[in-house]
């Protein structure tokens, strides 16, 4: 599906999960004693051209991994902010195919790890095998499918692995120890810990619970754990980041885009910079050796 057969810059580390772009990012951050800032925006909101601008700006401002939401008409795991972003993206004609093509174009400009967050039906309709092949060829590094628990991923998982895509699974506060063990082992790239029983954009109340759950999950796998849902401000990041390997911020960024001009890209950039600063320990931040290499 990638047009023109343009040769892509060889994506380093397509062979095994250990050396994927996501894994090496977490590895580098760990060495620098930093936590990953994972930034989510909805692809195609308000257009894919602007998405490209936003991704580059957020990468430049310190986002370590960028998640691109794929709009779906019935997003059961999302709150109103992301639902409305999906509506805007669909109205602008965004499809999974166009997003894959947009990633292909982005890959000539940035090496920031890119993860697609998409509901299962859009992948099914695309064709699971075709999607994995096209996504990997375009330079997508990982996929998160919020309505696909591992039990139902028996066809997608081997296809993703063969293509070198990290299939990232989620764990929740309600997950039993048995599920923590099996899901943690199956997840590639990182484990997405959903901080609360709820949907995207809700308020996180029980922070102590997050720390203890992440600790439990770490018993079962060495895969990095990133915490998402309910993390909206630099203060939230400062509080949650020490508990995990990364934090995921979504609705707060999507809100900036929803507010529109003036200068969405600038505001995304400065907000991302403040979030990234909050992922660093005060002492780490000061040390010049821990400065992030310019992309």
């Amino acid at each position: 599906m990638v047009q023109g057969g343009t040769s892509l810059p060889p994506a380093p580390g397509r062979i095994s999960a250990q050396t994927s772009r996501i894994a090496s990012t977490f590895h580098r951050l760990a060495e620098q004693r930093q936590k990953a800032l994972i930034a989510y925006i909805m692809a195609g909101d308000p257009s894919l051209d602007e998405t490209e601008t936003y991704v580059l700006r957020m990468a430049e401002a310190g986002a370590d991994i960028i998640e691109l939401g794929v709009p779906f008409s019935d997003p059961i795991a999302d709150g109103p902010v992301i639902q409305q972003a999906a509506d805007r993206a669909l109205r602008s004609g965004t499809t999974l195919r166009k997003i894959v093509a947009a990633v292909h174009s982005l890959r000539t400009k940035t090496q920031v790890p890119l993860v697609l967050m998409t509901y299962y039906n859009t992948i099914l309709k695309y064709g699971e095998a075709a999607f994995c092949r096209d996504a990997a060829e375009s330079g997508v590094d990982g996929i998160i499918v919020p309505d696909l628990p591992p039990e139902e991923a028996t066809t997608l998982q081997p296809l993703a692995r063969r293509s070198g895509l990290d299939l990232i699974f989620l764990l929740a506060p309600t997950s039993t120890a048995r599920r923590q063990a099996s899901v943690a082992r199956l997840s590639n790239g990182f484990i997405y810990y959903v901080s609360m029983t709820g949907i995207t954009g809700a308020m996180l109340k029980d922070r102590a619970d997050v720390a203890s759950k992440v600790k439990e999950i770490r018993r079962y796998a060495k895969t990095p754990v990133a915490v998402g849902f309910g993390i909206a401000t630099a203060d939230d990041v400062r509080e949650i980041a020490p508990m995990a390997d990364g934090v995921i911020v979504g609705s707060a960024l999507v809100k900036i885009i929803a507010e529109g001009s003036p200068s969405v890209a600038d505001r995304l950039g400065s907000f991302t910079r403040s979030l990234k600063a909050a992922t660093m320990r005060p002492d780490a931040e000061l040390s010049p050796t821990n400065k992030r290499p310019t992309p």
């Binding site: 059961i76 795991a77 299962y120 919020p146 309505d147 696909l148 628990p149 039990e151 139902e152 699974f169 989620l170 764990l171 929740a172 506060p173 309600t174 997950s175 039993t176 599920r179 899901v183 959903v194 029983t197 709820g198």
Partner: peptide, 21 residues
């Protein structure tokens, strides 16, 4: 046992709900 009616059915929901199901 997995809630399959032939190829149909199943459980395509967020992880949070799996323990409740």
């Amino acid at each position: 046992k997995r809630g399959r009616f032939g190829p149909f059915g199943g459980r395509y929901v967020p992880e949070t709900l799996i323990p409740a199901l």
